[in-house]
Amino acid sequence: MDHFPTNWGRPRNDAVDAYNTYPLHSRPVHHDSFADGVQRTQQPIVTGTSVLAIRYKDGVMMAADTLASYGSLARFKDVTRLHAVGDYTILGAGGDMSDFQYLKSVLNDLIIDEFTQADGHALGPSEIFEVLSGIMYGRRSKFNPLWNSLLVGGFKDGKSFLAYVDLLGTTYKDNAIATGYGAYIALPLLREIMDAKGPENISEEEARSMLTESMKVLFYRDARSLNKFQIGKITATGVEISDAISVPTEWAFAEKIRGYGAQTQ
């Protein structure tokens, strides 16, 4: 219970204290005893690795594995890092998974707010990206970043959309984007085909094989990855996020490798 009547409601006239119980100029200042204890994300804790996405003939296809790591510990092995936002957009996230979870709830509230308007306008990928990049840049400007690298893919009104935003608010659009380790390992593979053909000449099967092949290569080389991933696609028919997929890999050669492991000869 607040025992200061002037805090119950603002007097109509600031010059006259209608309650006349307490001098207006010396209201108690609100002090947050926990202000010093407020933590900001200064480093990611439970993290997801790369997200890959390409534009192709029918829309956008995106892939991410289902691992959430705790440092080098493979902590959660069935986490969905692809998330549908509204009817036209997929959001893919790398980086801190709790920040991603928070972003999902913010975007969910946004979609509900827009839906409630019932004005016949639904948010497309470009609008969602604008909101998202605003949130990311705003949080970095408050020195309280959301520690993620995000891909926004979508398809609306016959046009596909693919863009990137990260914890600094850095943004860009492209036909093929990969975050994290994927930017080093998978992106060159994706660009090789994209540059040769262009998105309009890549079929759904080819897009799928580009992403599965890239995910396989990432599994071979990225120590924080998992051979269990999802592929999401967004086309004129809507959003589809697959169940977890895995691809056959070949490790027999590993036994013969000398010089890295604990073996003596």
Binding site: Q42, Q43, R140, S141, F143, P145, L168, T170
Partner: peptide, 10 residues
Amino acid sequence: QRQFNPYTEN
């Protein structure tokens, strides 16, 4: 204290 760096060069 490791400080978050809000800048990068593009």
